[in-house]
Nucleic acid binder design. Sequence first.
DNA 1: GACATGAATGTGACCGGTCACACAAGGCGT
DNA 2: ACGCCTTGTGTGACCGGTCACATTCATGTC
Lengths: 345, 345
Amino acid sequence: MNVTGHTRRPASIRDVASAAGVSYQTVSRVINGHPSVKHSTRERVLAAIDELGFRRNATALALASGRSRAVTVLTANTTHYGYASILQGVEEAARAASYAVGIGVLESAEEVAVAAEVRRAADAGGGLIVIAYDPAGVGALAAVPAELPVVGVVETPATPPGGDRPWVWTDDREAAYAVTRHLLSLGHETVHYVAIPSSTRRTSARTTGWRQALREAGAPEPRPLQGNWGPAGGHRAGRKLAQDPSVTAILCGNDDLALGVLRALHENGRSVPGDVSVAGFDDAPHSAYLTPSLTTARLDFTGLGRAAFALLHGVLEQSAPIAPHRVSVPELVVRESSGPPPAHV
Amino acid sequence: MNVTGHTRRPASIRDVASAAGVSYQTVSRVINGHPSVKHSTRERVLAAIDELGFRRNATALALASGRSRAVTVLTANTTHYGYASILQGVEEAARAASYAVGIGVLESAEEVAVAAEVRRAADAGGGLIVIAYDPAGVGALAAVPAELPVVGVVETPATPPGGDRPWVWTDDREAAYAVTRHLLSLGHETVHYVAIPSSTRRTSARTTGWRQALREAGAPEPRPLQGNWGPAGGHRAGRKLAQDPSVTAILCGNDDLALGVLRALHENGRSVPGDVSVAGFDDAPHSAYLTPSLTTARLDFTGLGRAAFALLHGVLEQSAPIAPHRVSVPELVVRESSGPPPAHV
DNA sequence: GACATGAATGTGACCGGTCACACAAGGCGT
DNA sequence: ACGCCTTGTGTGACCGGTCACATTCATGTC
């Protein structure tokens, strides 16, 4: 095709125009499917587009029209299962709508750093999706200037962190409630909780659901232990819980935490589920293959990401309504790690 | 600040210019640190910039100058540990250089789909980083037009898949070699292998390293089993291997695969490492907390991502050389899952 | 004192699209 | 025949920056 050896720059609409013998505006009309273009002219232009391999320059489009067909996902992490899956969901939906997806990682939760990262994301143009499951994310959502189109992915439906902004959520509280009830129904006197870093200073939705189930059952409410995101945090918390013989059931804020807890229990000679039952949260891909396999609550993160994009898309194109949106009902997945408490307790 | 209720559009250099009583070009000079601007003028302009909250419009910059300060990462997956970590590394380095990061997922390995995805990424402007650890990625790298700046993240140093393009790699072959040798040194007669989908029709670097170690030791070379990426594939392969009493050591193409294998061995009543030793690849965060904890080869994926960006950055700014680059030496991590073969074999 | 030199600043065109408007040609009502 | 609306097409300005070049003024040199 490109006979000349030069790295010629890509064809513009003016190149196409002169090739087709029309004005650049007519080319623009053809590209945008404007109705009033004579059939024969359109054919000619399309042929020229095809021949020159013309592709509409996204940068110029963004500058001239103001809309950039891009979204940026702001998140504290890209490697944890939940976050990565949300991102994947966003990308999937964005690809289908031919939007570009950018990502920005909130490395620190410190206010100044978060604000800087939000500005960077804003510079990229287009809409913003902020994963606000943790302090950094919540801070970012709050730091987004009012005029910017943004959708929050949040954990709790109770207090919309971004004020009147659109947001999507999975019902973490309901999920935690369901798992806790499952454990109680097996006969455990109470359920201990190893928490993920909460999104606010106050308690997270997961904590709330857990507490609600205990309260309804009239069970004692032990203090939640603070974990991190990863297995290391769970391991630390698990070591403490393993010392206490009265502990027979442990709910963990996510599956990684649960993994750490399982390990700690094992190291301390307490069997699962014989001595202690353990449940996780998220249903990460490996949870089904652990030994013992993990009882957990499955959340549809990919769907959450897709929904977040759909909502933002609606905002950006002023088409869809911007009602907040609960994405799918969480599902309790019972596996080997939960069972009745030991008889002698 | 914004006293008028209107959502006024952000300040441009011309706004700043008139506020400071200079021409727009002078503002441009100040922004770009051009030397020949009188000190007092510069002060005045900076004050105006500050007051109006001016931020340079990235889109206009890209259109006018041609350079877009953006990279797009093309990958087959965002949730698996290795891929996600590479992405994280890229983002980290890009953020430090104030580049924007885009992502594109190669959902199918089918040629037409891959080519379309590459075009989409190209439209986003800036450079490309292609993770070419799998067929889709390799196809994408090959489909990138010659004039586009691109860096490949590849597994094998032997055959640069993108021709003369810059690339980065970790020494997977060396890592597989080291792990296999470790297992042989424990006394196993041979080591079986459960493979990840190879990047080419031929064998992957990991397979090569494994085979080389066997050959050097004069050990029999069993046929590698094909797994997927996830634990499910490992589980399937593990079930087959568990039937064969002669199998005493298994190397897996990644830690997820190893997890599936561990589970399958457990289900079939074979103990690890008592009856069978298992080793993984990648050192995913949860591998240290499994029971038994997993012997594996640690690869510096984040560093790989950072290096990929650094290389691309060099290409884009015509500063650095574009030599391919081996990123860090893989490290053997010995944990509980490997040990001597059972005595009676 | 005339003139080259360099520092400081301004002007106009351009990147590749879109948008608002102008304009020519054809069909229709009167 | 005239005006008027509709269809098809072209022109100029604009988005917000950069780039190449022109201009002004102070300074140093012969």
